[in-house]
Design a protein around this nucleic acid. Sequence first.
RNA 1: CGGGGCGUGGCGCAGCGGUUUAGCGCGCAUGGUUCGGGACCAUGAGGUCGUGGGUUCAAAUCCCACCGCCCCGACCA
Length: 572
Amino acid sequence: MKFSKSLIGTLRQDPREAESKSHRILLRGGFIRQLAAGIHTYLPLGWRVLRRIEQIIREEHERIGAQELLMPAMSPSELWEKSGRWEEYGDDMFRFKDRKGRDYCLCPTHEEVVTEIARAKVRSYRDLPQSWFQIQTKFRDELRPRFGVIRSRQFIMKDSYSLDRDETGLEKSYQLHKEAYIRIFTRCGIDFEMVQASGGVMGTGQSHEFIARVDGGEATIVACSSCDYRADIEGAQTGGTFAGFEDMPVTEIHTPDVGTISEVSSFLKVPCQQLVKSIIFTAPGKKPLLMLLRGDYEINEDVVKNRFGFSYRPATRDEILAVSGVEPGFIGPTGTYSVDIYADDLLKKATGMITGANKNNYHVKGLNISRDAKVKEYFNMRVPKAGDICTQCGSPVELYNALELGQIFKLGTKYSERLGATFLDEKGAEKPVIMGSYGIGLERIMACVCEQKADERGAVWPISISPYDVYLVVLNPAEEEVSACAGRISKALTEADFSIIIDDRDISAGIKFNDSDLLGIPLRVTIGPRGIKNGKFDVSLRESGEVSAVSEDAVVKLCQDHKAALLKKLEK
RNA sequence: CGGGGCGUGGCGCAGCGGUUUAGCGCGCAUGGUUCGGGACCAUGAGGUCGUGGGUUCAAAUCCCACCGCCCCGACCA
């Protein structure tokens, strides 16, 4: 490819809208172009990267026996009504009507569609197991698209689905995908980790996320400092220490207009650990719940929802008033109103605690939870925090941000039951297909590599996904000898199976060098009058900056050696 | 949706207590000189000042509404 004829167009300055590192680099290098919030064009350079990622994904899925197909990007509402997600998905789903007024969506994911295929095609246990994948555009009307391509409304995803006859089969499919994912991210040059994930509204099946440590990643990971425990904070469980304070009789204290934990803490000059948060959860048509939690923790809403139902959410001020009769900030477990009380397990032996008195502008002190509150059950409802205790080994945990690149998930029979995807087993009994679902965000791999590998000068692509292998800088392309030499070298490199971009632009050398750095092509060969004169040409490596000068007929060999070494590094 | 910021040639910005032809840098085009880490000279093209309404003799500039984009938060298989 000749740079002079390409649609690359690097930018000298960072576009104003770009904030995160990957967004800046992708925009400046001319890899992507934004059309609207969370909607991007993949320009030739970015598209080449995505296609190479796609190819790696394809190879690794085929290696585990998965078959590629392509489902439609749009779907009629019926399927989603059957699964219950036409409602559940809410505003995150792009919806529209056809000319006859029938409802459709742009698929945010494809469980429904794939299950519909399974319903029609899978009849017998002899048809199982199956593993199907596609690489396809997904649509989600995100509340807030951000970080360029990392959280967008239209994005490319590899999604695959396994169909099995029993749990053993599912476990095998799951393991195969896990291994494929490890190979994929390794080949893409990503520094990643596998962590336990929460099922969220998908259910409670086993799930793992593949994440990359990146500043500003939107997932928070809880990691043990000494063993291998790693979990997404949404599903993480950690231990804590019991906080006991002076055992004293329960007495009321006047706390005028002092409602929040931090206000009470500074007003009474006590640590947050001595306070108990009282949080009311409500759900339409269900009994309100009162959750008790130590003041220095946040409640994990997912845990509550998974346990009591997904319609539960924290009560609004009006609901709190209706349920308890007091303002938020002063509710507590000692009142007489009709709620079921649950408490975090760290409060079980807690003594001398302070919480709302269920009376406006009053708190109580000297509370021993097990003595003074009618707790139905204790369980871990905390969002973990740094310094908590690992449940596996007892060492302290740490928290960090990460970017979620992929997730594997044991779905079970949720969709096959609802959509009627069944098969007959050896005994002729009809059973629902047992499913797994597995996703990878392609743009996130691209962005992640920028976040992890790029330096001040620009991108640094691993050779496995770089848009080109070699950047051929041609200095003074107007000089006949130079262009003839560039022609010979590019021909030789092409014949040796290198993809190359030739910077034949009639501009100053600095721009070409800077652009080659910005574009992050792993190898660079410089051809100019000086090289012609000396009979030596610079071959340099983007990542290390290492430069060697070799004669014309040694260029290809050196590039081959470099390429082999770079590929070897990606094997891990 | 709450809080904050911003919309002026392709990109980055100035102008915004009302005044005639809306500037600057980069980029782009043409010619020339240069040529190993963002050169220089000359000439030139390119703008409904986000949209709509209002105030005014006069609006990029003042007022109102709306739209869009970015950041923080809420949210997120």
